[in-house]
Every structure is written in C-alpha cells, then in structure tokens.
Design a protein around this nucleic acid. Structure first.
Lengths: 233, 233
DNA sequence: TGTGTAAGTGGACTCTAGTCCGGTTACGTG
DNA sequence: CACGTAACCGGACTAGAGTCCACTTACACA
C-alpha cells in the first residue's frame, strides 16, 4: 500500500532554502536490469499513449499490454495511475523547483519583499499547473485519498514554500503580525489545485494572466496598509 | 447522461435576492406510485447504510440490493452516486440557502457592509460543508467530471452568492474598484471545497473557527484601506 | 561455475461504477 | 372496462482499478 517511489522535496528552514532529493536507489541492492528496462518501457509507452489519446482515456491495462508487461509488473512499480503520472513529470517538477528556489534566492538577495516573491511564485505555479493539469489531476485524485503521510504528498513542497514565504513576510513586518500563515498558505494554494484550475481555464475561460492577477490581489490584501502604523494605537 | 433531478438554485440579480426552485414534478405526468415508493426506500436505505459504514464504503449495488430494487432502477433515479448523495442533503441544502438569504436581507437592511456579509456567509459555509463533507465529497467528485451545464453544478449558487456580494461591495465602494469579482469569488470558495476542507480538518487538525478566521483575514484584505482615498491621486 | 533468495513477472481474480435492454405495469383515454 | 404507451423494473453486461500469488530469474556470494 505504501508508495514505491519517493520524490524530491523542497526543504525550507527558517533561514535558507535547500533542495533535498530522496531517491529509492539509495537502498541496499541496485535495481535489476530487466526491471529498469521494463520501467523505462512503461514510462515511454504511457507518455506516448497519453499524448495520443489523453490521460483519462488510457487504462492501466492498456499501458501494461502496450509496454509488453503484465499488470502485476506495472503495479509493482507504480501503485496507481497517479504515481505513474507523477513519474512522468518528475524531471520537470525538479526543474521547476530548482528554478523557483534560485529565483527566490536572487530576489531575497536583491531585497525584494517576501510578499512580492510569493506573488511571483504563485504566478509561476499557475503556468506550471496549467501545462501539466492532465497529469496533475490524476496525481491529486489519488493523493487526496491517502490520509497518512501528508509529508509525502506530491505538493507538500508547494505548501512549504508558500508557508515559508508568508512566515518571512510576517517576520519582516510586511503583513499584520497575527496572520495565520499555515491556513493562508492552504487557502492561497487551493484555487491552484489542478481540477479547480482546469475548470477555471476551460469552462470559465479565465486566462492564466487573469488568474495570476486575481491571486496577486489576494496577496496584496495581506500587506499591512502603509499608513496603518501611524493610526489608532 | 443528463441529470434526472433538478435542484433549487439561488438567483441573485443586481438588486435583490430570490430563491428559485425548479422541481421535476412540474412536468407533464406525475410520478408513478411504485416509483415514488422505490425512491423513498432507496433514500432511506442509503441513509442507513451510509450512517452505518460511511459513504465511501457502501457500493451502489449494495444500496440497490438492500432497498430491494435492481441496479437499473437505482440508476434511473440517480445518475450516479453523487446525485444520490445530493438528494440526501436536499432539504438541508434548501434550509441552508433560505437561512443565508434571509440573513443577508436582514444584514443589508441593517446597513451591514457587504464584505462583512461575505465573511459571515463563508463562516456559515464552513460549518455546513464540514458537517456534510462525506456526502459533498461524493457530489463534487462527480460534478467536476461534467463539463457541460456549469449552471447546474450543485454549488453554483455558492458562487453566485459570493460573486454578488463582491459586486455589491465594489459598487458600495468597500473595495478597490478594479477587483476581479468573478475570479476572487472562485478563489475564496476553492479552500471550501469538501475535499480540501476535510483534509484541513482531519489531517491538519484545523478547527472550524481557525478556518473561518483565516478566510476572514483574506476578505479583510479586499477592503480598501480607509486612509487610501486621501492619498496619492 | 553452482546456488539461494529476494526481486521481478504475468495474468487471473475481485470489486465497483455505470450501461443496456427485454419484459412489466401504472394510468390516462375512449 | 379495455387498451396503448410511456415510464418503470431488474439483472446481465462492460470496463477499468487494483490485488494476489504461483512461477521465474538476475545476481551476490561461495
């Protein structure tokens, strides 16, 4: 029942940001050669079939058959369809994380306010999520079912990042001091859930720019009004 | 493929709020007696089984069998499990809508700002959603799959309400004038999606009070800063 | 090079959602 | 009361997700 693959996670401590990669190959024995070949064939096949007909229209059985393996083999590597989808995005998710982290380091070095960094992060996330929405939908569908191990859920690092930025914004006096950073992080990420975003883009015809602007207006609302501190004591 | 039951919807036009109930019995022929009996037996059975073992643990086949009808009969009434769940909540959803509408009328009459009304609406919605989360999860799971007829999706009235309140807040000069009310309404409701709320309550141990407070801080952020209008032109 | 064993493999199996369709029955109409 | 028809009914059927388990094989070690 536990997941077979452990993905990388972003770790942001109080002072700095680091990327910690946890790989399954750190274990005792290396993967068997035939297993590696099969895994790669599975991924290549899934990618091709998904591209041809869409993620939702391709069954796990079909992927297995097309890849020339049995269902048992497929499920040994990927507990469910979501995990397979996650694996297909893995390198792009790593790249995205790396880009965000270095961008934030640069902005921090340049003295850009944390709330501005947050707005920028959300903007980037809008584009990333929109592009990968079909795969992410599958991923999130399955991860929401798992109660245990929230830390391992694929988008925990998004939450970590937003939360850390909010905490720093509070520490830097950019917001009201009693902001509930943990909840607000959840609330800001909720409209970026793949399903929700897809609905907004495809059914409501919201553009990515419009969504970004809307999120930024919410972030701006967190800002302590500049004249407030000279007001009623 | 179309839905068998049409539920009530809240209609908020520019000036007033009204509740429009659309009932299937407005059609040509009344329902057959045996059909009515079966429907009631199905609903009672489903309610009992859900209470005993949880919504997710009860299959449609089991409901049909326990109610003494075939699967075909069950699906004739309720296109999917979500619709069945929706039917089980119907009276309570109507009551909730009525309460909100009359509350808002009173508040408007008393001159309560629209953003305050919005905060109050979201608070009530937190409690409602939390209580009905198991059923709502099923409902939302299915409605997100349907692309067409967004107007009919069960929570459209929530969106309508929030959107209308935001529009009035803009008109009443309570917010910045360029607020994207359509998007912000979506964004404020996203963290109240049943799945999301359940995760926050059960896995993160957020209390309803905490969630309400967090949402209120976001709503407060929409408020135009009081001293702003005397500032830079 | 032989061997033990843990990892890998395939496909039959279960479980559930949802569809289909031939037979049945309530009920408005004459 | 007879009758036509549209609504109703039940259960067999399809299809997909995920599980299970007996069989096979790579590979570390002797």
């Amino acid at each position: 029942m536990g997941r077979k693959v452990v993905y990388n996670r972003t770790i942001m401590d109080g002072q700095s940001i680091s990327l910690q990669v946890v790989q399954p190959e750190g274990e005792s024995r290396p993967e068997r050669r035939d297993a590696i070949e099969n895994r790669e064939r599975i991924l290549a096949t899934a990618e091709r079939l998904f591209a041809e007909r869409g993620v939702a229209e391709v069954s796990m059985a079909e992927i297995a058959q097309s890849a020339g393996v049995g269902k048992g083999t497929l499920y040994r590597r990927f507990c469910n369809k979501g995990e397979l989808c996650l694996a297909l995005m893995d390198s792009q998710m790593r790249a995205f994380q790396d880009e965000r982290l270095s961008e934030m380091r640069e902005m921090t070095a340049a003295g850009v306010p944390y709330l501005t960094q947050l707005a920028r992060f959300l903007e980037a996330l809008v584009y990333f999520t929109r592009i990968h929405a079909p795969l992410l939908r599958e991923v999130q569908q399955h991860s929401s079912a798992l109660d245990e191990e929230e830390v391992e859920r694929p988008h925990f690092w998004q939450y970590m990042t937003v939360h850390a930025l909010l905490q720093r914004a509070v520490a830097a006096n950019e917001t009201l001091p009693d902001l509930d950073t943990a909840y607000v992080a959840e609330a800001l990420l909720a409209p970026l859930e793949a399903n929700t975003l897809r609905f907004q883009v495809e059914n409501l015809n919201f553009s990515a720019e419009r969504i970004t602007a809307g999120l930024q207006s919410l972030v701006r609302g967190l800002r302590r009004a500049e004249r407030e501190d000279s007001g009623t004591g």
